[in-house]
Design a protein around this nucleic acid. Sequence first.
DNA 1: CATATGTCCTGAGAGC
DNA 2: TGCTCTCAGGACATAT
Length: 272
Amino acid sequence: MRRAVAPAAGSRIDDVIRPRSRLQPILMSPPLAQFRRGASGRTIQSVGRVGKRVVLALDNAARIVLEPRMTGLVLLADPPNASHLRLVLELSGGSARQILFWDQRGLGVARLVTPEQFDTFYGPQRLGPDALEIPLHDLRQRLRGSRRPIKVALMDQALLVGVGNLYASEILHRALVHPARPCQQLRPEHWRRIHRELRAVLEEAIVHEGSTLSDGTYRVEREGRYQTYHRVYQRAGQVCLQCGRGSIVRIVQAQRSTFFCPCCQRSNGIRD
DNA sequence: CATATGTCCTGAGAGC
DNA sequence: TGCTCTCAGGACATAT
């Protein structure tokens, strides 16, 4: 998502518009009028990322943080439809004409923040290191004291950023670790496998431009293809592609679906 | 402190 | 057809 928006770097923001819609507006901070005054006339110096958020660094050191959450998209063109378009940054001076914030459910957030606010809300006090960069010892150090299930801890953005519900299940299946196992009980071999599969799953998913699920919303410039590589996610009742014996089970952890193979991901002992 | 739960919002699909 | 219910790449305030 960040890469698709990267060509907007160097462009000037001419205006910030909320398309009229029967739907609830997304949360903006500050409110639209003030947001527009603060962003208009500024040049986008870079398009970055903090975990799952897209970050536009402006020439006055302020930043725009776009947080799509579950069903939001940040795009330069071609949103899935017009009715769920929530916010438009109109641009000039470069190849991109606009940045679009599209969000089916409207849970997304757009923030214009000062450098101090950025550090407060998105700095290391609030958010952990990126999942693609965290070293093994750091991952282990941060999680291993916890009594929480490993799957729930992996999704805690204060510990590390970038792992959501879908990928947490996929990572643990490939790492052969039961999702309900408390972090405290995991052994060095488990952490090694979790660390390896964490990177592997996310990097493969990025190569295939993410997972377009049954709701059809997630896309970058076209639909993602990683859903065809899912081994457990939304495969409850189907045979495990890894062992060919177990059938995939769905459980609920912290109000979210978890999928795993009871055969490959047994809680006892260490397997390879 | 660490951990658990309810809530925001819209739409799709299942079951009756 | 229409109703109700459940569920969804998330994060945060508030409760325990």
